[in-house]
Amino acid sequence: MSIGRTIICLLVALLLTSPAFGQATGTPKDMAGTGYYRDQDTLPGAIRFYSQLPGGEGGLWGLGPSRQKIRRSSFKMDAHDEVADYSPEVRCKKCHIPQTKDLHYLRMGITCVQCHRSQPVAGVYHYYSSLNPIRRHAYVCAKCHEGATPSFASYMVHEPNPIAPETRGSFPLFYYVVWFMLILASGVFLFFLPYTALWWIRELVAKLKGRPDHG
């Protein structure tokens, strides 16, 4: 093989390489693989965890986060390519404030790039993204949660505000159950706190009068 043909081969190889690999901080295998599955992860119902486009489903599944709005940029190789003033130098937190209010970020001190990888940040539904539901459990969650499964990976790290009206549509079970608990708890407090205070005052009144209260 001549030197000229070798150079042409190398150039073609470079040009044909998927641009998605450009974001790789791990090995290309990480990007192409679909993760590790056990038998129960591949049963017919389990497909819900890998679905690229969550849709309306019946029963318990319909009460889950299946009607989240997904941005077009979530399917892009570079999720920020339409953001005019985007710069990799700017901290993620400057724009993604709601995404910093969760246990992973606040309590465990996990940084954005530990899951979303470095520049360019791929949309989570891009085929090669490490956060794509087909491989998220194996390549992201399992870094800390040993044995993470696709079902486990459907936990919402950036969970919506459970009491916000929008959550009623996007994650109904979360909305209704949290509201139920809040009403239960506030009902108990709203009754017992004033009632015990009045009760105490009533006993004081009875004592001051010095009369037995019983009928």
């Binding site: 318990l60 499964t149 936990y155 979360f174 608990m181 708890a185 108990v188």
Partner: peptide
């Protein structure tokens, strides 16, 4: 054991469980 729990129900049930646990604890 959230990983084990998600074998028996969808993982997003843990989002619900954590808030219920917190509110009941406060109560």
């Amino acid at each position: 054991n959230p990983v084990l729990t998600s074998d028996y129900m969808p993982g997003w049930m843990l989002n619900v469980a954590l808030w219920v646990h917190r509110i009941e604890a406060v109560l």
